[in-house]
Computed example of a mutant assay.
Amino acid sequence: MSHTTLTSLFAYKAWANTELFSLLATLGEAQAAELHSCLRTLNHIHVVDRLFQAHLGGPACPYSATNTPDTPTLAALREAVAACDAWYQDHIASLSNADLAESIAFTFTDGDRGRMSREEILLHVITHGGYHRGNVGQILKSLGMAPPRDLYTKFLHQSEPARRQG
């Protein structure tokens, strides 16, 4: 995969997260239980992002499981996710093709050992987050709300309007 594609995918991830957090901020007290479910799912994404960030050589990760016992507030999680998204974008910009191919050994939170290339880890982070943002979208649909259109095509055409021209 090219650096251009990875850069675009992680910009898309940050955009999709921003869109989703903005919509969640509109939920009221009547939707507190559903918001909590959404936050649990988004926190899981964030914790997994942080675990793999540490595997990639980023800051040490304070988590020993794929979610935390306590649920962060929407504001705190939004800020933490934005910082992590920025780290991934900066990290990708620093990588060479040889770096992307580098194999990294690590231990999963359940104690199983794993080995993936940097590129595979980065693709896992993208696909894992997209899968679970879809779960949050289903919760929003159950409330009669249209979730953000978390589509790579929408992101590309919104961020590069010239793509819409002949």
Rank of each mutant, 00 (worst) to 15 (best):
residue 1 M to K: 09
residue 1 M to S: 11
residue 3 H to Q: 12
residue 6 L to A: 02
residue 8 S to H: 11
residue 13 K to I: 02
residue 14 A to V: 01
residue 15 W to A: 02
residue 17 N to T: 06
residue 17 N to F: 04
residue 24 L to V: 04
residue 29 E to S: 12
residue 30 A to T: 13
residue 31 Q to P: 01
residue 33 A to C: 01
residue 33 A to I: 06
residue 33 A to S: 14
residue 34 E to F: 03
residue 34 E to S: 14
residue 35 L to S: 00
residue 39 L to Q: 01
residue 39 L to A: 10
residue 40 R to Y: 10
residue 43 N to L: 06
residue 43 N to K: 03
residue 49 D to Q: 14
residue 50 R to I: 03
residue 51 L to K: 05
residue 52 F to C: 00
residue 52 F to R: 02
residue 61 C to T: 04
residue 62 P to N: 03
residue 63 Y to N: 07
residue 71 T to R: 05
residue 72 P to Y: 04
residue 72 P to V: 05
residue 76 A to Q: 11
residue 77 L to N: 03
residue 81 V to K: 06
residue 86 A to L: 15
residue 90 D to S: 13
residue 90 D to F: 01
residue 92 I to T: 09
residue 93 A to T: 09
residue 95 L to A: 01
residue 96 S to E: 03
residue 97 N to D: 15
residue 98 A to T: 14
residue 101 A to M: 08
residue 118 R to D: 05
residue 122 L to K: 01
residue 124 H to N: 06
residue 127 T to H: 10
residue 128 H to V: 04
residue 128 H to A: 07
residue 129 G to T: 04
residue 131 Y to F: 14
residue 134 G to W: 02
residue 135 N to C: 07
residue 135 N to V: 12
residue 136 V to K: 07
residue 138 Q to L: 15
residue 141 K to L: 15
residue 143 L to Q: 12
residue 144 G to Y: 08
residue 146 A to G: 07
residue 156 L to R: 12
residue 157 H to Y: 15
residue 157 H to W: 05
residue 159 S to R: 15
residue 159 S to Y: 06
residue 162 A to Q: 14
residue 163 R to T: 10
residue 165 Q to P: 01
residue 165 Q to R: 14
